[in-house]
Computed example of a mutant assay.
Amino acid sequence: MAKPRPTGTQPPVLGLTEPGNLVDVDATGLRPSDEREGERYSDADLSDYDLSGVSFIQCAFDAVTLTSTRLRGARFVDSQLTASFAPTLSAGRTTWRDTLVQSPRWGSAELFDADLNAVHIRGGKIDYLNLRSSRLTNVLIEDTQLGELDLGGIRGDRVAIRNCRIGTLDLTGARSVNVDIRGSEFSTINGLEGLRGVTVDDYQLSLLAPVLAAYVGLVVE
């Protein structure tokens, strides 16, 4: 007998574990395209470092400064970043898997064309999170203050944005399945067509009603 198909919005599936048995390492030795595993970097200032193509596997970053650090094409796997700081974060085309980002303090975070799978962003403040054209699978963003969240052109499945305060939410061209924004606040939303496949709550729907009516050309008298 065939199993019944699940109904309703499917939540992210996360099985994150904290990296253990780590070796404390001096981050000054990091170079582009390095492959690093089982290391901890604490209170390191990596401003202006070129770490393009670096792979971090089962690594932990504690209170690390990433101002203008070039991380294009870098990989974070089974890792954890806690209280990282970056007025500008250059991380386009990065890969993030089974990774926790805890309490980030990021200004402009450029994560366009990235691949996020089983990623949890929790707490903190990000002025501009650019995930444009990224693939998001099993991603949870919660309790985070976001000045602007750019999800334009994403392909999202099992994505939840919970209890977040968002200034501008951009969904232009987004393709979504099981994307849930219930419980979050937003002031402005762009790209109404990208709401297809997104789950909202009753209160959010009431706020969206006027712009949705205008979008489809309804006349309300």
Results as ranks from 00 to 15, higher is better:
Trp96Pro: 05
Ala209Val: 13
Pro4Leu: 11
Ser134Ala: 15
Gly183Arg: 05
Phe112Gln: 09
Leu46Thr: 01
Tyr215Val: 04
Leu205Glu: 14
Ala60Thr: 13
Tyr41Glu: 05
Gly194Ala: 04
Gly167Tyr: 09
Arg158Pro: 04
Leu131Tyr: 01
Gly20Tyr: 10
Leu129Gly: 06
Phe85Gly: 04
Asp78Arg: 04
Leu151Asp: 00
Ser52Cys: 03
Gly194Gln: 02
Leu89Gln: 03
Val211Ala: 07
Ala214Lys: 12
Asp170Gln: 01
Glu193Val: 11
Pro87Lys: 04
Leu149Asn: 10
Arg40Pro: 01
Gly123Ile: 06
Thr67Tyr: 13
Pro32Arg: 09
Pro104Glu: 00
Val77Tyr: 07
Cys164Gly: 03
Asp50Cys: 10
Ser133Asn: 11
Glu142Leu: 07
Asp180Phe: 06
Gly38Ala: 04
Leu207Glu: 14
Leu89Pro: 03
Val216Lys: 11
Leu195His: 04
Ser108Asn: 11
Pro19Thr: 08
Ser184Met: 08
Val220Gln: 05
Asp26Trp: 01
Gly124Val: 06
Leu146Tyr: 10
Glu18Thr: 15
Val64Asn: 03
Asp143Ile: 05
Val54Asp: 00
Asp115Met: 08
Thr95Tyr: 06
Ile181Val: 15
Leu66Met: 13
Ser47Cys: 01
Leu116His: 01
Asn178Cys: 12
Ile121Asn: 03
Val200Trp: 10
Asp98Val: 09
Gly183Glu: 05
Ser84Tyr: 02
Val25Met: 09
Thr69Cys: 15
Phe56Leu: 04
Ser42Pro: 00
Arg155Trp: 12
Thr7Arg: 15
Gly53Ala: 03
Ile189Ala: 07
Ser55Cys: 10
Leu14Pro: 02
Asp180Ser: 01
Ser134Val: 03
Leu14Thr: 02
Gly217Met: 08
Ser42His: 10
Gln80Arg: 13
Leu149Arg: 02
Tyr128Met: 09
Arg135Ala: 13
Glu185Arg: 15
Ala214Phe: 04
Thr172Met: 10
Leu30Asn: 02
